[in-house]
Design a protein around this nucleic acid. Sequence first.
RNA 1: GGUCGAUUAGCUCAGCGGUAGAGCACUGCAUUGACAUUGCAGGGGUCACAAGUUCAAUCCUUGUAUCGACCA
Length: 801
Amino acid sequence: MVEAVRKVFVDLYNEGLIYRDKRLVNWDPHFQTAISDLEVEPREVKGQYWHLRYPLADGVTYEHPVFDEEGEPAGTERRDYIVVATSRPETMLGDTGVAVHPDDERYKSLVGKFVTLPIVGRRIPIVADEYPDMEKGSGAVKITPAHDFNDFEVGKRAGLEVMNILTSVAAIVDGDEADTAGIPQRYRGLDRFEAREAVLADFEDAELMHEIEKLKIEQPFGDRSGVVIEPWLTDQWYVNAKELAKDAIKAVREGETRFVPTNWEKTYYNWMEDIQPWCISRQLWWGHRIPVWYGPMLDRGRYVSTAERKVFVAKTWDDAKALAENDPDYEGVRVNLDESPLQMPHTGTMHTVEERPRDVYLVQDEDVLDTWFSSGLWPFSTMGWPNKTPELDAFYPGAVLVTAFDIIFFWVARMMMQGIKFMDGKAPFKDVYIHALVLDEKGQKMSKSKGNVVDPLELVDEYGADALRFFLARQATQGRNIRMSTQGVEGYRNFATKIWNAAKFCQMNEVQFGQGIDPSTIKHPTNKWVIGELVRAQAAVADAIAAYRFNDAADANYRFIWNVYCDWYVELIKPLLGGDDEALKAETRLVAGWVFDEMLKALHPFMPYLTEELWGKLAEARDGFLMLERWSDFGPEYQDAEADAELDWMLDFISEVRGVRGTLNVPAGAKPSLAIIGANENTKARLARHGDVIKRRARLEEITLSDAMPDGAVSLVLGEATLGLQVADLIDLAEEKSRLGKEIEKLEKDIAGIEKKLANEKFVSRAPPEIIEEQHTRKADAEAAIDKLRGAATQLASLLG
RNA sequence: GGUCGAUUAGCUCAGCGGUAGAGCACUGCAUUGACAUUGCAGGGGUCACAAGUUCAAUCCUUGUAUCGACCA
């Protein structure tokens, strides 16, 4: 790891992609280190804008427009000062200019003139620059290049001096720097906030305080220290991220690396295309120490008069020493390592003497690297790079990186840049899956300071790890965050219990686990159907996982297990397992067990503990872990359309009867008889096969074939047949009349809608034929059903008298 | 200011150019054979608003509003 980090640093340095530069950094005065833009948290806080009067130098005056109480223009007044607005008055000690917008009519005459900076008495120019906002404050801004990022840029454009007035702990400077800036003695060493009070008091005393405006201001805070960050001028090491970003952008543009969901690509581009030089040095005690050694500046063995130092960048001290010894400037001198005491390289100065030293001492940079500099090497440094290893061959590039969106900049972007750079242009992963953030119940980000953190371990204790995991998967819709909900987790605890109980049922019924099946030998439609359902569900799970749609995968599992296997299949096979057809019993035990086993496989990624446990317990002598099982590929022989149609019919039959019973409040204990009118041969055959099961599930006394609707029977339509549920003595016939009325009304509405559509010439001529066909079918079905229901209504009416 | 996302049942959220879905909550019924951590049934939605495209829009386009996140 150390080797990888040093190699990357040295290589990038030698290519000119790492360099040392004096720039403004985000300085954390608490931890006394530079931090990256990403570690700065802008917060809106209550603040003030102080409007300060800067006296114009050389007796200059100008006319400034004034307004009356209604805000109407009221002429001008002659001023011998210019007003600047600031939220940080103490920085005025370092002001080296005042800027106004070139289009600002008010100040046009002042550009090129000077002001006398109060307190320090410095003469500074008024310059024109696009930066000031004419609408904000007075329209004129003070420029402090050493202590503000915008001002730094303005200063650069206008050629203003850069004057540092703060120390590393954000106190006013003392000594030489203070002398240069002309800072009065009483200010020196004051903390920045004390200095602010002092400056304000001085302005008040000098009657230069123009106005105080209260408003909300954005202030930068260190995300770890929580103190106000100070833009500060220092020497730091930078990576030319702009250059490295080029190929990293290209890799995503060309589809070598794909973001899932894809909309994050835009976020990635936005940041990468506007990337700033990456400050990688940190003034911390932990981390990878920067592999740079500094020595005195010599010219062919002689000291030269400069404060600069010679820089040797190398992987080790030995290499650095060799570099120095071979340097013509170090000709004839002995190179030694100076281990202490060390000077902070960004503040230190070196002696300059006109002589030929016998020994020079090199000192290693005290700073360490930004943690993301080494983390960015993770995809290959963990595989043994820079050595060539089998692991590196096998696992670079990786298939998928799973992470949260807030890590795209910190980590993903750096891995992309460094991976492509050092791994022959190959991006470190094919897919980047950006997962949801887990928020609290109200949709707020969890944080310690808010006290809304939900401890996953507590949820695991209460509901189980599988329930929590399944809940998260079920909620993990692409592009949306997850709101934590204990109630939701509880629901999946119940799901786990349900599975456990289904297993118990199977065991009690001597279901055979751990056996294969040959679908061609399975005879009973219910068994054929459940095999088909399992296969379809498993395919749905597999497809969803492949598409990173984990919610759909979890959902497909949930539905199959609860709604198909438990709610229907288990109920449907109870009569079979309790019957006396031994061959059918054996077949059902085999199928029930096989389907259960396959179900465990499909569910395993979502509920690993429960499924592994059941897998091991249900069958004796299974070879190994469920975790290691492969999912099977099921061919068409596992599907049977005929069986599916038959079961659909049966399930409809039962549901329809249950629905009517519910609507008409037929007591659950009552077992009415049912007559079927107009059944075709197919229906009769199905009835022969499933009559017993239907009776049991729909709670019917008997099912008979009939030519006519028995008196007082409630009609419902099932395919070509009409079912007559004989409940006249159990229900309120008026209820039934109203039910029929509602059904008929609904169908009439449907039919009217379809007819309107079909009467629309444009629809008939332009819609695809299958859509038109579908409308015809729907209409015919609805008409057939409505006929039967109208017949029933007439009959009922006569019965009611 | 820029970018992205959201707006669908009381709540949390799926979904889709052609019949609006789930879970929870709610209502009614059911309890001696897997499971009350349950079963069966039911009520409940102008799919934010406006315009456009289309034979057809909750879905596509544009705009508006509100909310959220990220960046500046």
